[in-house]
Design a protein around this nucleic acid. Structure first.
Length: 134
DNA sequence: GACGTTACACATTTTACATCA
DNA sequence: CTTGATGTAAAATGTGTAACG
């Protein structure tokens, strides 16, 4: 299912082995009639199609890591190199991790703030009690 | 145990777009 | 409206390391 236009997608490969004949037809000069994010992935470099990302994202939800088999399978389904799928997962894991870290920080900070105000209250209470004693 | 290989984490670079003056 | 500066997220690269045969 989900056949993307392989013709285009496949081109995005080449692991940047060598510069190759970049010289694409649609040279910069006004040729970029299609400012479309999706469909000029041809012939040059990166940015995955929304549908591909959607797929990867779904797959990531199911399982955060991927065995070689699933990698190949997934790559086939969405028309990417297995290598690209692997890289995507690596980057995705990294993103997830930093997000999680931020969340953890927020939680920690919240509890710290709470503790801080509690301390404040106790400190003041203590102060007033001492004043009473005097 | 020293070797190649593989897969990953992590840091870093490179690119594609967005935004704004 | 175009153009260049700047910022940002994502794709890709590079490096180090652990696991495995």
């Amino acid at each position: 299912m989900v056949n993307f236009d392989q013709g285009q997608v496949q081109k995005a490969k080449k692991r940047s082995f060598f510069p190759q004949l970049d010289k694409e037809d649609n040279s910069s000069t006004g040729g970029d009639d299609n400012y479309d994010v999706c469909f000029h992935q041809t012939e040059k470099k990166r940015r995955l199609l929304p549908k591909q990302v959607e797929f990867l994202e779904k797959s990531f939800e199911v399982e955060n890591k991927l065995e070689p088999e699933r990698k190949v399978q997934l790559a086939k389904e969405i028309g990417l190199q297995p290598r690209q799928v692997a890289i995507w997962f690596q980057n995705r894991r990294a993103r997830y991790k930093t997000k999680q870290l931020e969340k953890d920080y927020d939680v920690l900070k919240a509890s710290f703030d709470k503790l801080n105000t509690q301390y404040d209250c106790l400190f003041k209470e203590n102060e007033s009690l001492r004043n009473e004693v005097l």
